[in-house]
Nucleic acid binder design. Structure first.
Lengths: 190, 190
DNA sequence: AACGTAGTACTACAGGCGGAGTGGTGTCAA
DNA sequence: TTGACACCACTCCGCCTGTAGTACTACGTT
């Protein structure tokens, strides 16, 4: 088992692209090798088996999907009212949509998780952390709404992104924009 | 190209199970043959190629996911208030979750649609119809809320089902129940 | 400065699996 | 008798895994 961390990261990033492009079943050692432009057989040396590969990708994908520190810092600026909230959610949707291969890869991983208990455990933990962090961040931010608002926004925006990435002709960009606004407004609740 | 419609339906239903279990890439003629318990080679005779198979499955899957007439009729009974709305949404979530292979297959198809234009066209049309039907049905029902409520519920409940089917430990059954209630309440808006 | 060692990159090969496509045969009914 | 379909068999092909073996490089030792 090789240990070069740069190479490992390159392989995992390659695996994300393969996942998005070829689907879970297309994620093979050879495909990862090609995508990462390393000699065939390399991935075999870095992952014990396909299960291991899936698990490691599941562990890393959130690092790439989450906002960086600068973005987080910026999110705390300005008056924290409903308009600001909507603005942040627009940024979120755009940021995630922009890294579309990452989001599609995560969907593939979710589906694969129905077949691989280890992967399911990793994803459950990561996503649980993410949700809890969102709730905590929201509570500390002074933005309007409660925990339920955060959860409802999480639900609605996730599917909105699915819709945009998988069947882009269902909603126009304008409709997506308006739905984000309305989702924020109504999820804040009475 | 064979034409026996019963056999074709059996093959497509088999394909749905294969999709859910093995993923899009696992959907092969041979796998469908096995699942439908017909001799190997049969699917080759019913679908011109894999693309055709995907497209036909995409056309049929909604027939099986949508409520039957009896359920639709029952949905129009009783006082059409917010509590009734929530009740209907609980039924919806449970009904779709119950046919989990169908829902998972649809997710696989969505992901595959990013690679197959024909499939994308079919799914876009079907889902567009479904959304429009939901809006029309809602408008005629006398239930509270507007078109936007319907769309926001569509978004939130879809992801809730994804969450339940792919990572069941993220939310408890109780949390799911409460989220449906809150989604109905808040999506109705001010 | 020469040498040895460890870790890694790269190459090559053997073996296997599963699928596509197709042609042929049997069967039944109009 | 003819046509449509079920069923069966066979060949060709592509891709993947696992692993053994070789080459290279860096680093520590003496």
């Amino acid at each position: 088992m090789r240990r070069n961390p740069e190479r490992r990261r390159a392989l995992i990033d390659g695996a994300i692209e393969v996942l998005a492009r070829e689907g879970a079943r297309g994620l093979t050692f050879r495909a990862v090798d090609k995508e990462a432009a390393v000699p065939p057989g390399t991935a075999s040396n870095y992952f014990a088996n396909r299960d291991d590969l899936f698990t490691q990708v599941g562990g890393r994908i959130y690092e790439r999907l989450l906002p960086d520190e600068a973005t987080m810092a910026r999110s705390r600026e300005g008056t924290q009212d409903q308009n600001r909230y909507a603005e942040l959610m627009h940024e979120l949707v755009d940021r995630v949509s922009a890294f579309n291969t990452g989001y599609l890869a995560l969907l593939e991983l979710r589906l694969e998780a129905t077949r691989r208990p280890e992967l399911r455990a990793v994803l459950t933990e990561r996503i649980r952390e993410d949700i809890d962090a969102n709730i905590a961040h929201h509570a500390a931010s002074g933005l309007p709404g409660d925990k339920t608002s955060v959860l409802l926004l999480y639900l609605a925006l996730n599917w909105l992104i699915v819709e945009r990435l998988t069947l882009p002709d269902i909603f126009t960009e304008q409709e997506i924009h308006d739905l984000v606004d309305e989702a924020v407004r109504r999820s804040l609740g009475a």
